[in-house]
């Protein structure tokens, strides 16, 4: 899909907030449009379990 760079740079940005919601909240308070993506590190951030999941899932 062709991208119109001028339009992208001059248009109003839309932010995608991944994970911790508070970052997006401050952008929204500043008047920006924010799309929230609910995400957290797999296995609560435990690297041993994440490695197991890499093999098993």
């Amino acid at each position: 899909m062709p991208v119109n760079l001028d339009e992208l740079l001059q248009g109003k940005p839309v932010f995608i907030n991944v994970g911790v919601r508070a970052f997006g909240d401050s952008l929204r308070e500043a008047g920006h449009e924010v799309i929230y993506l609910d995400w957290s590190p797999p296995a609560g951030g435990d690297p041993r379990l994440a490695a197991i999941l890499d093999d098993l899932l």
Binding site: A43, G44, D46, R48, L49, I52, L53, D55, L56
Partner: peptide
Amino acid sequence: PLECFSRALARFSEKYQ
């Protein structure tokens, strides 16, 4: 608690890997 599932996964890995 997520811990129940984490412990089960670790044990599963121990048994099968």
